[in-house]
């Protein structure tokens, strides 16, 4: 594991993609087992998806809930997300260059990513399966409104959609709008409605009951 974390810091060539040693070995196994007909990648994805809420510390939900309840923290988060999250003692450190982008009635943010070691899983948990699919990715850039509609997110025509592509230098966290009807909720309760999809902009937080 230690090697896993060290790997992407010692390489200073940020022009190409990177995977950790462990990720390379896991991909190699999946490739070989798939070629030999022992596993079906779609079936593997389904198993992994079933554990979506059981992977990683999923710190993002707590960060979003804090930003909804603490205006000073929210401002700090938007100014420098890595630094702001570092001030939350109970949240494990995140990589450098994490940028929080805020959804407003005027602007909706959506993040695409290619799943190399830059994906901030410690914040977001399991990435969506469609991140692996190139057609979806290019469509997300060309027709974000259509992609969002496929995910059941309909925005008014006045809402501008911005698509952010993670790079080796920067990773993104969408700060979704706080749902109506959650006034007076505790941070813990608010964190419950923050989904992975709402933090990559392909979904909205769960509505208040």
């Amino acid at each position: 594991m230690a090697q896993d974390h060290d790997h992407h810091h010692h390489d200073h060539d940020h022009e190409h993609s990177e995977l950790s040693e462990t990720q390379l070995r896991v991909r190699a196994l999946e490739t070989v087992l798939t070629e030999k007909g022992y596993v079906d990648p779609a079936a593997l994805d389904a198993i992994v998806e079933a554990y979506e809420t059981k992977i990683g510390p999923r710190n993002g939900a707590r960060v979003v809930a804090r930003a909804w309840t603490d205006p000073a923290f929210k401002q700090a988060l938007l100014d420098d997300a890595t630094k702001a999250i570092g001030t939350l003692g109970h949240v494990s450190r995140v990589g450098d260059h994490l940028i929080a982008v805020e959804n407003t009635p005027q602007r909706h943010n959506m993040v695409v990513c290619t799943l190399c070691s830059c994906y901030p899983w410690e914040m977001l948990g399991l990435p969506p399966v469609w991140y692996k699919a190139s057609p979806y990715r290019s469509r997300a850039v060309k027709d974000p409104r259509g992609v969002l509609a496929d995910f059941g997110v309909t925005l008014t025509k006045d809402t501008e959609i911005r698509v952010w592509d993670s790079t080796a230098e920067t990773r993104f966290l969408v700060l979704p709008m706080r749902p109506a009807g959650t006034e007076g909720w505790s941070e813990e309760r608010l964190a419950e409605v923050v989904t992975r999809d709402s933090m990559i902009g392909t979904g909205l937080p769960k509505a208040a009951p």
């Binding site: 196994l29 999946e30 087992l33 992994v48 059981k54 992977i55």
Partner: peptide, 12 residues
């Protein structure tokens, strides 16, 4: 699981 790859290894 601590990281996505762990779940992938488990699934395989």
């Amino acid at each position: 699981f601590k990281e996505p790859w762990e779940a992938q290894a488990f699934a395989m």
